[in-house]
């Protein structure tokens, strides 16, 4: 690791002032589970590290009809939260799938979203959930919709002096949700992951379906073709399967040491089908 200066401010304003002063030379340190490996490898060489762990940003609350997560909510806290399990079980499921127990002890919601790994679970879940991000800097704050937040492989619209302070999403009560992912070894980053949110109308037809896929492109994204194919249809197994097939045509993933693009395409279809099937069965189980 290269030497750097370090500060652990106690207030958000202090943190923002430090970021304003050091700009691109500074790095925010949250759980460190992505940043510290980069530092260990000397792939990141900041001159200044702003440790945000003392900031009061670790709250989970339901507020103005939205579930709001502070940026410093740990993956383990998220996975164990009763409020989240009730209001937004997709996040519970997603958080439990992240890494190993040590990663979940320290890793944070904000860190995962700011790091923006294309195969990470939380960015995927936020895309499916239509989440909103609260960004603050010494200059002020702004709210960014999820579709605008991720801008490419490991990049977001966060500016060097900005802090992600919270993320919020509408609860999914009444809907069925599921995450399906496939990795070579459980606990590793997924090769492909799919999140699905389904609501069923009174007639027993799909009212709305939201499907997001990760591990394919530089950023997780929705698959409207699949969503549209289901809307208004009865959620029978063969229809789900046919809709899920569309996912394969929508993706052109890359190959790497762990899997070929062709295989990832196969997974995109299978995981979409399985995520939808589970989400549908959960949606059907929701008391009307």
């Amino acid at each position: 690791m290269q030497p750097f200066e370090y500060a652990a401010p106690a207030s958000v304003d202090e943190a923002l002032a430090l970021l304003a002063r050091h700009g691109a030379d500074a790095k925010v340190l949250a759980g460190g589970q992505s940043l510290v490996p980069l530092l260990n490898y000397r792939l990141a060489r900041p001159r200044f590290v702003v440790d945000v762990n003392d900031l009061p940003l670790d709250e989970i609350r339901v507020d103005a009809g939205r579930v709001r997560l502070g940026a410093l909510v740990r993956h383990s806290t998220l996975a164990a939260s009763a409020v989240v399990a009730r209001e937004c079980p997709l996040l519970t499921e997603a958080a439990a799938l992240i890494g190993n127990v040590r990663v979940r002890s320290l890793g944070t919601v904000g860190g995962s979203l700011a790091h923006a790994d294309p195969a990470a679970e939380l960015p995927l879940a936020m895309v499916a959930l239509d989440a909103r991000f609260e960004l603050r800097s010494a200059r002020g704050s702004r709210t960014v919709e999820v579709r605008d937040f991720f801008s490419g492989y490991l990049t977001t619209v966060l500016r060097p002096d900005e802090l992600l302070t919270s993320v919020d999403a509408p609860p999914t009560r009444g809907a069925g949700t599921a995450v399906e992912e496939f990795s070579r070894r459980p606990g590793d980053f997924a090769l492909v992951a799919v999140a699905a949110i389904v609501t069923i109308d009174r007639q027993g037809r799909v009212e709305n379906a939201r499907v997001a896929i990760g591990g394919i492109d530089g950023v997780p994204r929705r698959i409207p073709a699949v969503e549209n194919a289901l809307r208004g249809e009865p959620p029978a197994t063969d229809r789900i399967a046919r809709a899920a097939e569309l996912a394969r045509a929508e993706v052109t993933p890359q190959s790497d040491a762990l899997a070929s693009g062709e295989y990832r395409t196969l997974l995109a279809g299978v995981l979409t089908k399985r995520a939808l099937a589970r989400a549908v069965s959960r949606a059907m189980a929701v008391p009307a």
Binding site: R184, R185, P186, G187, D188, F189, D256, A257, L258
Partner: peptide, 27 residues
């Protein structure tokens, strides 16, 4: 099931424990 040093023209693509996979308790 999983272990493989992946080489591309003599270049090793699996130089970390995140890419050279050995079995964990759940495998």
């Amino acid at each position: 099931m999983m272990e493989e040093v992946v080489l591309e023209d003599g270049i090793n693509l699996t130089t970390s424990f995140a890419s050279y996979l050995i079995p964990t308790t759940v495998d």
